[in-house]
Amino acid sequence: MSTEVDPRVYVLETRDVSKSFGAVKAIDQLSISILREWITCIVGPNGSGKSTLINLLSGLLPLDGGIVVVDNVGLRVVKAHDSPDHGITRTFQEVRLFDQISVWDNIMVVLTERRVFPALLERTKPSHKEEAERILKSVGMWEKRDAMAQDLSYGQRKLLEIGRAMAMDVQIYLFDEPFAGLFPRMLEQVKSILKDMREQQRSIVFVSHNMDIVRELSDHLFVLDSGALLAAGEVEEVLGRSSVIDAYLGN
């Protein structure tokens, strides 16, 4: 294991990626590069294409054009079930847990065997249990493990979803508004989770509207407007540009 990784290595790139919904161009020839082991933030006004971009990168929506580059491989088609193989996992803007199963099973389900026939024969392994216990404790949900996911509070659901992503053990984490609607205590918890993940050499992309958090966490910032890249670069510098201020506040 080399400890000195060149920070200027791209783990994920888009090249001229486009996506339209009918006549609306949600993403318009967008090219961005995500740096390895950095926390990258994507901001932009509502409807600027942030969530659409994450849906494209995780394969939930098909690309209309352009390519996504992961592991130096260019992909014209990104399949959702391949995203862990590309080293990508994600959370959703609207929390999407498996509601009518337990908190415990919500974590276990992403730890176990993927292939159909081995999965049929696989019983719960001690290693899976240890990992699920570690994850649940790290997001503070261990006490709630037997509860159904649908019975959790909003903040707990948000945390559990982040825990489920952490359980994936991949390189790139796409967090769609991980801070939205959280109380200050949980906000701090999620912040420290993201910082810890950076410490553990993971690459993080998150979407947020909270500029204080963006300033505190981001190593790199992209500003989207109407599906196109408006600005990119170091946080304070980008947020100071007049074009960015205009896009947010309107003319």
Partner: peptide
């Protein structure tokens, strides 16, 4: 079947098929 890893994935498909697919399962 229902107590295997396979069975747990089935319940996840029931709850949110798109979401479980993102975690690498060919639903």
């Amino acid at each position: 079947i229902v107590t295997s890893s396979f069975g747990r994935v089935l319940t996840a498909i029931r709850e949110d098929e798109e979401a479980i697919e993102v975690f690498g399962y060919r639903t």
